[in-house]
Amino acid sequence: MTPTPPTPTPTPTRPADTVFELRFTSTPRGARLARRLTSYCLDRWGHPYGSEVNDRASLVVAELAANAVTHGRVPGRDALLRLVRDGGLLRIEVGDTRGEREPVVREAGDDEEAGRGLLIVGALAESWGVAARVGAPGKTVWAVLRAGGPGGSA
């Protein structure tokens, strides 16, 4: 029997501390975990709890994750949170496995309890949009926030 030579490990294109990924269950509990770990991750990246960047990013993740588990849920399939820090910008991506349901921005009536999430995301983000997931079925809703340097405000 001939031993198999080791395969080389690819060199990452980004330092490990600039990307965070989490698969979370498509449940309210999973969405809450995504929000809390976003806050923790940003604290570790130099944006402390209670800072403007940490609070805004946590709110955007809360809205996108809630939408993913409410409208993009496929039983037995997880959602994906991905945070990418690139210079002074933070890209937030939340992917779900339901590609046929595109997010809809609408004005909620005064007496409605839901329907304002993407308006909040649009107000907090520099830009946002929807893309097909790469390598998996479904869609990814993304938002880009101005993050400034570690410890700084946006």
Results as ranks from 00 to 15, higher is better:
31 A>V: 11
52 E>Q: 15
109 G>S: 12
116 R>I: 05
147 A>G: 01
48 P>G: 08
50 G>L: 11
78 D>M: 14
117 G>Y: 00
139 K>I: 07
73 R>V: 15
105 V>L: 11
153 S>P: 06
51 S>R: 03
51 S>D: 10
51 S>A: 09
25 T>G: 12
122 G>S: 08
31 A>W: 08
70 T>C: 15
97 T>M: 10
153 S>F: 01
117 G>Q: 02
84 V>A: 13
13 T>K: 12
75 P>Q: 09
55 D>T: 12
7 T>M: 06
74 V>Q: 14
106 R>P: 05
32 R>E: 12
32 R>C: 02
89 L>M: 15
56 R>Y: 09
4 T>N: 10
1 M>T: 14
124 L>P: 00
58 S>I: 06
8 P>G: 09
45 W>P: 06
100 E>P: 01
22 L>P: 03
2 T>C: 09
31 A>T: 12
72 G>L: 05
44 R>T: 08
71 H>I: 12
145 L>G: 00
40 Y>H: 05
144 V>T: 02
128 W>A: 00
97 T>K: 11
6 P>I: 07
58 S>N: 10
86 D>R: 14
113 E>A: 04
16 A>I: 04
145 L>H: 00
84 V>I: 09
34 A>V: 04
27 T>L: 03
36 R>L: 15
71 H>K: 10
126 E>Y: 00
121 V>S: 00
38 T>M: 02
139 K>F: 04
148 G>M: 00
144 V>Q: 01
116 R>C: 01
70 T>F: 07
48 P>S: 04
37 L>Q: 11
90 L>R: 08
63 E>N: 13
